[in-house]
């Protein structure tokens, strides 16, 4: 989780990622930030994030992002 928060802070600083639960709905992360975030996450966690996963529910909090990463890592 710590590494994920580091990545998020690198892309979009000044957000309380540990507690924020509306990163997308609250407009803390723009669509450009999401494009960067996806590229970084794929590189860092060796996963592929398909377009279908790019929904607010998966990106609204650091916890949700982590869950998506773990789920994608679990996949074959």
């Amino acid at each position: 989780m710590e590494r994920l928060i580091e990545i998020l802070e690198d892309i979009q600083p000044d957000v309380d990622y540990a507690n924020c639960t509306d990163l997308i709905d609250g407009h803390y992360l723009s669509s450009l930030s999401i494009i960067s975030l996806i590229a970084e996450l794929e590189e860092e966690y060796d996963i592929t994030i398909p377009a279908v996963e790019i929904v607010p529910d998966n990106f609204n909090s650091a916890e949700r992002i982590m869950k998506m990463i773990e789920r994608l890592q679990e996949e074959y």
């Binding site: 979009q12 450009l32 930030s33 494009i35 960067s36 996806i38 590229a39 970084e40 794929e42 590189e43």
Partner: peptide
């Protein structure tokens, strides 16, 4: 995605992606 990663390093968080 590769383009975004490399461009972000050179152009920053806004102009990169």
């Amino acid at each position: 995605k590769k383009l975004t990663s490399s461009a972000r390093k050179k152009l920053g968080n806004h102009y990169g992606p």
